[in-house]
């Protein structure tokens, strides 16, 4: 029996990779644009109240402080847990200082975003607000979830 030597070439078979690479780059670009690195600011386990009338923030304020309030009265700020609302003064002082260095000289221009769990007592939210007011922070946003899921 004779083998056909012509068919036994040593050439490597190579498919055309161009379309696959195109697609993969598209996918990477898609995920890169949508990735959200700001998760440290939001405590994902917090169940926000639902409201359909809330306005989605169009522009990011020059300086914002995101406070996550839980039903037990603990506040999570920038990944750091504060046991009591009474201790927030220190953080506010520090933040106002940071804001000043970034050019936001007036504390009332700092946006305070309050993300509170839906079952938190409103009294705790009010206590947090009055703590902010003591530090001359007066621009509040009560954050809610846009649609139920």
């Amino acid at each position: 029996m004779r083998f056909n030597k012509k068919n036994q070439s040593n050439e490597v078979l190579e498919g055309d990779l161009t379309p696959m690479i195109d697609m993969v780059f598209q996918l990477i670009a898609f995920f890169m644009l949508l990735i959200n690195f700001s998760e440290v600011d939001r405590a994902e386990d917090l169940m926000l109240p639902v409201s359909t009338l809330a306005i989605a923030p169009e522009t990011r304020p020059d300086y914002q402080i995101i406070l996550n309030l839980r039903p037990d009265g603990t506040v999570t700020f920038a990944g750091q847990e504060v046991e009591k609302i009474d201790f927030m003064n220190v953080i506010f002082r520090q933040e106002i200082d940071f804001a000043r260095r970034e050019g936001v000289t007036n504390p009332s221009d700092i946006a305070v975003v309050i993300r509170s769990h839906r079952d938190t007592a409103t009294g705790l939210v009010q206590k947090l607000i009055s703590k902010c007011q003591e530090s001359e922070l007066e621009n509040f946003s009560l954050r809610v979830k846009d649609t139920p899921y």
């Binding site: 926000l48 009338l53 809330a54 306005i55 989605a56 946003s141 009560l142 979830k145 846009d146 649609t147």
Partner: peptide, 8 residues
């Protein structure tokens, strides 16, 4: 989830 604000 999309979030919105009530500004006060």
């Amino acid at each position: 989830a999309m979030e919105g604000d009530f500004n006060i």
